Simulated scan of single mutants.
Amino acid sequence: MTFSLVTGGAGFVGRRLVRTLKDRGERVRALDLAPLEGEDGVQGSVADPDAAARAVEGVDVVFHLAGHAQLWSRDPGLFDKANRAGTETMLAAAKRAGVKRFVHCSSLTTLVGRRAPRAPSTVDETTRLEPADMLGPYPRSKLRAERAVEQAVIDGLDAVIVIPTEPLGAGDKSLTPPTRMILDFLRGATPAYIDCTLNFVPVGDLAEGLIAARERGRRGERYILGGENVSMQTLLDALERVSGKPTPKTKLPYQVALAAGFVDTAFSYATGRSPKAPLTGVRLAGRPVSFSSEKAARELGWRAGGFEPALEEAYGWMKAEGLLG
Score class of each variant (00 low, 15 high):
Glu146Gly: 03
Gln43Val: 15
Asp23Met: 06
Ser293Cys: 03
Lys245Ser: 13
Ala192Leu: 07
Ala92Trp: 00
Ser45Trp: 08
Ala148Asn: 11
Arg222Ile: 11
Arg216Thr: 10
Pro178Asn: 10
Arg273Lys: 15
Trp317Ser: 05
Leu252Glu: 12
Ala145Met: 08
Tyr223Met: 09
Asp155Ser: 12
Arg54Trp: 02
Glu308Leu: 10
Glu312Thr: 13
Leu198Ala: 04
Leu300Ser: 11
Asp40Met: 04
Ile194Lys: 00
Thr2Val: 14
Ala53Trp: 01
Val28Trp: 01
Cys105Met: 12
Arg15Phe: 01
Pro309Ser: 05
Ala116Lys: 03
Ile224Asn: 06
Phe102Leu: 08
Leu108Tyr: 15
Gly261Ala: 14
Arg128Lys: 14
Leu33Tyr: 09
Glu37Pro: 01
Arg283Met: 14
His64Leu: 09
Asp80Ile: 02
Glu39Arg: 15
Val160Met: 06
Leu111Phe: 10
Gly86Lys: 12
Leu186Met: 14
Gly261Cys: 12
Lys22Met: 14
Tyr269Arg: 14
Pro278Arg: 13
Val256Leu: 15
Ala85Asp: 15
Ile154Phe: 11
Thr89Trp: 00
Arg303Tyr: 00
Glu37Thr: 10
Gly322Leu: 12
Ser141Met: 07
Ala320Phe: 03
Asp195Ile: 02
Val18His: 02
Leu17Gly: 03
Ala270Ser: 08
Val59Phe: 08
Leu300Pro: 01
Thr126Ile: 07
Leu206Asp: 09
Pro131His: 04
Asp264Lys: 01
Glu228Gln: 14
Arg144Ile: 02
Pro35Lys: 03
Leu78Gly: 07
Leu31Val: 07
Thr20Gly: 00
Ala148Tyr: 03
Glu146Lys: 12
Gly306Asp: 14
Thr110Arg: 02
Asn83Ser: 09
Val103Asn: 08
Ala66Arg: 11
Ser243Ala: 13
Ala270Tyr: 03
Met181Asn: 06
Ala97Asn: 06
Val103Thr: 04
Gly226Lys: 05
Thr110Leu: 01
Pro278Val: 13
Pro49Leu: 04
Val62Thr: 06
Ala53His: 06
Val123Arg: 12
Val56Asp: 12
Met134Leu: 14
Tyr269Asp: 10
Gly8Ala: 11
Leu239Thr: 05
Pro117Met: 10
Val13Asn: 02
Ala320Ser: 15
Thr110Pro: 00
Ala152Thr: 08
Leu300Ala: 13
Gly14Cys: 04
Glu312Arg: 15
Leu91Gln: 08
Ala266Trp: 14
Pro76Phe: 05
Gly156Tyr: 03
Phe200Asn: 02
Glu150Ser: 11
Thr110Trp: 00
Leu183Asn: 03
Phe307Gly: 03
Ser4Tyr: 01
Val282Gly: 02
Gly58Cys: 03
Gly8Asp: 05
Ala213Val: 09
Pro248Ala: 10
Leu258Trp: 12
Arg114Leu: 14
His68Cys: 01
Thr190Asn: 08
Val56Gly: 09
Phe185Tyr: 15
Arg222Trp: 09
Phe262Asn: 01
Ala97Tyr: 01
Ala55Cys: 05
Arg303His: 07
Glu88Asp: 11
Pro35Cys: 06
